[in-house]
């Protein structure tokens, strides 16, 4: 491990192609802008702009810059707050979903009665649209008024109840999909691995935890990349339960000025930036955690 890790660390600068340099530069620009923008708007750092004002005055841009770009710049601050929520929804959904997915997939592979319960849950969730699930949670079961009644919700740093409902929805939905990815990864780990773990005296649960999961989770990485990308895109559905994430912001802006092309191009570019960043991030994770003989890289085909 130590040897491969060192090699990839020193190799990073040696082996970059021009395309990778451009991608990396775009990534740094995007995330740098987002971080400065948000920290500035929250009053953490002073980057010299009021919360709703762009860093660059659109009116002062040089002549050769297309008009629609200048137009878009004006709305970047508002878009940034949307991007922030999109990221929050995605990260929360994938993280909490993972926490649920691990026991679900273990129950599915190794359980008896629990295997059927897990199967029923994943099939029901995977068999119905996410938007319907969000509507059920938001309008149907009283979750909204319950969360809204909790102390602190919607005040200061704590987002309001719609965001929490969305997080619950994405967590449940993502748990079902992640459980499926992890399940198929677990069954791709040979059974003899658990036998060997049992033979040195590990309990079944410890054998799963220390031997099967560490291998299975590596096999599941490509699935996660899909899931992360999926969540980034489908977090846009939270707009329909009033969450002011990226798509909602774009819709707000365009319904005021009818500049659909500019606004939705901008939104699309921001989504693409998030999706490509996620894919690159997962590539790095896969490379960093790779072990000869386990998983996709240098592994079995």
């Amino acid at each position: 491990m130590s040897e491969t890790a060192t090699r990839s660390r020193t190799g990073i600068f040696r082996s970059l192609s021009p395309g990778q340099v451009v991608t990396a530069a775009a990534g740094i620009l995007f995330w740098g802008w987002l971080a400065v923008r948000l920290l500035n708007d929250w009053g953490v750092v002073d980057a010299g702009a009021a919360p709703d004002e762009p860093f660059v005055d659109p009116a002062g841009l040089p002549e050769w810059i297309p008009e629609w770009v200048a137009f878009a710049v004006e709305f970047l601050p508002q878009m940034a707050s949307g991007v922030y929520l999109t990221v929050v929804l995605t990260v929360a959904g994938i993280t909490f979903g993972f926490v649920l997915a691990v026991p679900l997939s273990i129950a599915r592979v190794y359980g008896t009665t629990s295997s059927y319960l897990s199967l029923a849950f994943t099939e029901l969730i995977r068999g119905t649209p996410l938007l319907v699930q969000l509507f059920v949670l938001y309008y149907g079961i009283g979750l909204t008024s319950f969360l809204g009644g909790l102390p602190g919700v919607g005040q200061g740093w704590v987002p309001d109840e719609a965001v929490w409902v969305a997080i619950v929805g994405f967590t449940i939905n993502s748990a079902a999909y992640q459980a499926e990815y992890i399940r198929s990864a677990l069954i791709s780990v040979e059974e003899s691995q658990l036998t060997a773990a049992r033979a040195i005296g590990l309990s079944k649960l410890d054998g799963i935890r220390y031997v099967v999961l560490p291998q299975g989770l590596r096999y599941a990485i490509p699935g996660w990349t899909n899931e992360l990308v999926y969540l980034i895109k489908y977090s846009s559905l939270a707009a329909f339960i009033t969450v002011p994430e990226l798509f909602h912001q774009a819709q707000d802006i365009s319904s005021n000025n009818f500049r659909y092309t500019a606004v939705f191009t901008l939104a699309g570019v921001l989504y693409l930036a998030l999706v490509i960043s996620a894919a690159k991030l997962m590539e790095t994770v896969e490379r960093r955690t790779s072990i000869p003989g386990v998983g996709r890289i240098k592994g079995r085909q």
């Binding site: 003899s192 060997a196 033979a199 005296g201 590990l202 031997v211 003989g293």
Partner: peptide
């Protein structure tokens, strides 16, 4: 589990833990 602590086993197909180094295979138990 206690019994298996006292009885070691060597397998035909080795069954080494694929995600652990040689050292890690021995230290895990």
């Amino acid at each position: 589990n206690e019994l298996r602590r006292d009885v070691g086993m060597v397998f035909q197909d080795f069954n080494l833990f694929a995600h652990k180094t040689a050292l890690g295979n021995v230290t895990l138990g």
